[in-house]
């Protein structure tokens, strides 16, 4: 297996095992953090904090566990496109639901 390093560009990037353990540890700490954060009185920022932590965890999973950091630009564009389309789904739906109440205004 001495010649394995010469092949790494051929078979894909082999990430050091230590990196996976570090990511795992951060994800575990962040899970404990999000449970703790839910017990704090932060008003509207409870959900903001929960989503920031979830997005941080998700980004680590995608970049390292799913190798996106070492993938081709085409794969990166695919992932960014999926997030973009997801936000189109959310934002167009919410522009409908949030503004529906406005039309019930009976003043004039």
């Amino acid at each position: 297996m001495a010649d394995l390093s010469e092949h790494t560009d051929y078979v894909g990037h082999v990430i050091p095992a230590r990196m996976y353990y570090v990511i795992w540890a951060i994800l575990m700490v962040m899970t404990a953090t999000t449970v703790f954060a839910a017990t704090l009185e932060l008003g509207v920022f409870n959900i903001v904090l929960a989503l920031v932590i979830a997005t941080f965890k998700g980004t680590l999973v995608v970049l390292f566990f799913m190798h996106l950091r070492y993938s081709t630009k085409l794969t990166m564009v695919t992932v960014v496109a999926s997030i973009f389309w997801l936000f189109i789904l959310f934002s167009l739906t919410m522009t409908d639901y949030i503004t529906r109440a406005w039309s019930t205004y009976t003043g004039h």
């Binding site: 894909g12 009185e41 929960a50 989503l51 979830a54 998700g58 566990f65 799913m66």
Partner: peptide, 28 residues
């Protein structure tokens, strides 16, 4: 192996969002 790995991590990723949204809406 790589692609089944991607699928598995994706399922983990979905749960990372499901957990705070369903369990931790307003614990206080």
């Amino acid at each position: 192996v790589e692609n089944v790995g991607l699928y598995w991590h994706f399922v983990d990723l979905v749960w990372i969002y499901l957990f705070p949204l369903l369990y931790l809406i307003s614990h206080k």
